[in-house]
Design a protein around this nucleic acid. Structure first.
Length: 508
RNA sequence: GGUCCCUUCGUCUAGUGGUUAGGACAUCAGGUUUUCAUCCUGAAAACAGGGGUUCAAUUCCCCUAGGGACUACCA
């Protein structure tokens, strides 16, 4: 029987969730689910200086919103308080300091690690010299050979210290990465890594190795930036006499200039994209394809399908430029597929933010420009107008503005279709006006309006464009918009007639 | 500087010792449509370079070039 698959996502709470991290979570999640394994969330807050208040809660909420469920680790309750669940916790590293201390002591006892009393200043100076000589900056091993007495004396004098890994000077360390295959590094090029900082906190290297072991992690799936430090981790596993997990490094997400995706060159936080109105499903689908392919020509995947299909062998080695063109397309696709009630709910904040409407009570909204009261059903109709052409939800504020604004501003030339004269425009609008005036409010449905107006055009022998274009512009004031029938149906008789009249007046 | 990793259309990628090197996004053109969008059709667009190995290399090997990551008491 093979060992149970257990993977983890282990972010440090330094602010926001990075897109690259989101992909790492996704791949971990999919790998776990695909193999009927466990997926856990562990918080690596071993750097006090970089800790950002609230980032754990924020992170947990985003994972939840994205639908990436984990079974153990850190959760947030209704009062926005964190709590931990699982048999291997605590899952917040700052609460596990005694554990790391114990293992560091063991390492020192076994002579796989040593106290280093060098000051930061000395280290800096050392590195500077090494760089001047074009040497690789590395700890020079000054404290490596300190005698027991010397160490005792310095400890007794309360000299600040760190604990370093005693990396062998000879030989090689190698491992088989599931994606990058065999990686082999000469030990003499590996630095004596700090394991325990002078404040008693472990470094990432120590903490993650100890925790991955203690938490029975079977596969470490993380970003490629960790590839060079994996040999250090292997050395640590060896020193402890532990079995190493499988290591898998994921290719990086890149800026357009091919450097590691960074804040400097645009938005990198998942929240930023959520705010812009990208749907979680589209985001996941998009990011799935940045580094993984199903070996078929399929591109659209629900989370369930991803789980079914995902495997590490489909992950490639090259970094992928984070280019949102395809994301826009995908998002449009998901928007079009979405249930209109759900979509409308999601659009609401954007309509409010655009100062078009205001929520006055449950299911009651006020159009700010006209003071009219409307309900959710009405908003659904409005959103439906744009569902087909919307790429990001954030566009809704602008694209649907014409519905909520009483006085449209546009040039009268816009009313002209091809080579019509103003006279023709006026006549056709008048015809439409007369015809629509006859209708009852309840007959203002898309289908009925279409029928009535098409009949009219046939009777009068008017080219469709010559009537529908001016009408559409009169109703929307826009060069591009939904069609006149559906717009008219949403606006209702009174507004439609008013807008047509305004169009007529413009070309008089 | 050192160590390690990577290299197929603009972008994400498929692919094989013999293929018209495939798909998607984006672009362009055409069709549908009152416009935009959708939808449909089509076009243009890539194996970094040089050596080998081989009857044959985009595919295997080597070198070069280019790019990237790491090189902290950060993760």
């Amino acid at each position: 029987m093979s060992k149970k698959i257990r993977v983890r996502f282990a972010p440090s709470p330094t602010g926001y969730l990075h897109m690259g991290s989101l992909r790492t979570v996704l791949y971990n999640y999919l790998f776990a689910k695909h193999n009927d394994g466990d997926f856990i969330l562990r918080i690596e807050d071993t750097d006090k200086a970089r800790y950002v208040e609230g980032s754990i809660e924020n992170l947990v909420k985003i994972l939840d919103f994205m639908g990436l469920e984990y079974s153990e680790g850190v959760f947030v309750d209704q009062d926005n308080k964190t709590f931990q669940k699982g048999d291997f916790g605590p899952y917040i590293q700052s609460q596990r300091l005694d554990i790391y201390q114990k293992y560091v002591d063991e390492l020192i006892k076994k002579d796989y690690a040593y106290y280093c009393f060098c000051s930061q200043e000395r280290l800096e100076e050392m590195r500077k010299k090494q760089q001047l000589q074009k040497l690789a900056p590395m700890y020079d091993g000054k404290c490596r050979e300190l005698s027991k007495d010397e160490v005792q004396k310095l400890l007794y004098e309360k000299t600040p210290y760190v604990v370093r890994l005693k990396v062998p000077k000879e030989g090689f360390t190698e491992f088989e990465d599931l994606i990058y295959k065999k990686i082999k590094i000469e030990n003499k090029t590996i630095d004596d890594q700090v394991l325990m900082k002078s404040d008693g906190f472990p470094t990432y290297h120590l903490a993650s190795v100890v925790d991955d072991h203690l938490m029975n992690i079977s596969h470490v799936i993380r970003g490629e930036e960790w590839l060079p430090s994996t040999p250090k981790h292997i050395l640590l596993y060896k020193a402890f006499g532990w079995k190493t997990p499988e290591f898998t490094h994921l290719p990086l997400l890149l800026n357009p200039d091919k450097s590691k995706l960074s804040k400097r060159q645009g938005d990198v936080a998942v929240e930023d994209y959520l705010k812009k109105g990208y749907l979680p499903k589209a985001l996941l689908n998009f990011i799935l394809l940045l580094g993984w392919n199903p070996k078929t020509e399929e591109e659209i995947f629900s989370l369930e399908e991803m789980i079914k299909r995902f495997d590490l062998s489909g992950v490639n080695k090259t970094g992928a430029i984070f280019n949102t063109e395809k994301l826009d397309w995908l998002n449009g696709l998901y928007v079009r597929k979405m249930d209109i009630s759900k979509l409308t709910k999601l659009c609401m904040p954007y309509l409010i933010k655009a100062n078009l409407i205001k929520e006055i009570s449950t299911n009651k909204y006020k159009i700010l420009n006209t003071g009219e009261e409307i309900d959710f059903e009405y908003l659904k109709k409005v959103v439906l107008l744009e569902q087909e052409r919307m790429k990001k939800l954030s566009e809704i504020g602008e694209s649907v503005k014409f519905i909520f604004i009483d006085k449209l501003e546009y040039e009268k030339e816009l009313l002209i279709w091809k080579k019509m004269s103003f006279e023709e425009v006026k006549n056709n609008l008048e015809l439409a006006y007369q015809e629509l005036e006859k209708l009852n409010e309840k007959d203002f449905t898309k289908n009925n309006l279409e029928k009535v107006l098409r009949d009219l055009m046939e009777q009068e022998g008017i080219n469709t464009g010559k009537l529908l274009w001016p009408l559409r512009v009169a109703l929307t004031g826009l060069k591009g918009s939904p069609g006149p029938f559906e717009v008219a149906a949403v606006l209702g008789k009174e507004k439609v007639l008013k807008r047509i009249k305004k169009g007529i007046e413009l070309v008089k």
